[in-house]
Simulated scan of single mutants.
Amino acid sequence: MADLSFWSGGVAFAATFALFIAGIARAGVRDGSLPRAVTWTGLVLAAAGLLCLLAPVADGFGYLLPVVRFGGTIWLAFAAVLLTRTRSLTTKIDRGDE
């Protein structure tokens, strides 16, 4: 039961969260809505999250779990603020409200 808890709460969460971060970072690169430093940080966090899949096999990768969990949450909040500002700016320009 403890192994199932570790897999679902640790490794599986980190891997799926990494895919989520990678999708947002890739979209930010594609349309320029996020600065390059933010997108590259997101892609590095995503790579670390995918490396967490090796945590049950090699103990050294287990240290990446909290990095992805907490670092990814901070990155996600920061990216959300930037995307909200970018979205409201483009909406105002499209309407001519400048």
Rank of each mutant, 00 (worst) to 15 (best):
R36S: 13
V44M: 07
T16H: 15
L83I: 06
G32I: 03
A37F: 09
A47S: 09
V57E: 15
T39R: 07
M1V: 11
A77H: 11
T84W: 15
P56A: 00
Y63C: 05
L4W: 11
A2R: 14
K92I: 07
R26T: 15
R36P: 10
R26Q: 12
A12Y: 07
I93V: 14
L83A: 06
L45M: 06
R87L: 08
I93K: 14
L50W: 15
L82C: 07
V67T: 06
I93M: 12
C52D: 04
V57H: 15
R87H: 11
L50Q: 09
I24T: 10
L51I: 14
S88Q: 15
G10T: 02
V11P: 03
A22L: 05
A27P: 03
T90P: 10
W7Q: 10
G72I: 04
G9K: 06
P35S: 00
A14M: 00
A47T: 12
P56S: 03
F20L: 13
S5M: 11
C52W: 08
A79R: 04
P35C: 00
V57L: 15
D94N: 08
L34R: 06
A2Y: 12
R69Y: 12
A47F: 15
W7R: 09
R95T: 12
L89Q: 13
A77L: 14
T86H: 15
I21F: 13
R69T: 10
V29H: 09
A77W: 13
G32D: 05
A47R: 05
I21L: 14
G10A: 02
L76K: 13
G32E: 01
D31Q: 00
A14S: 09
C52T: 09
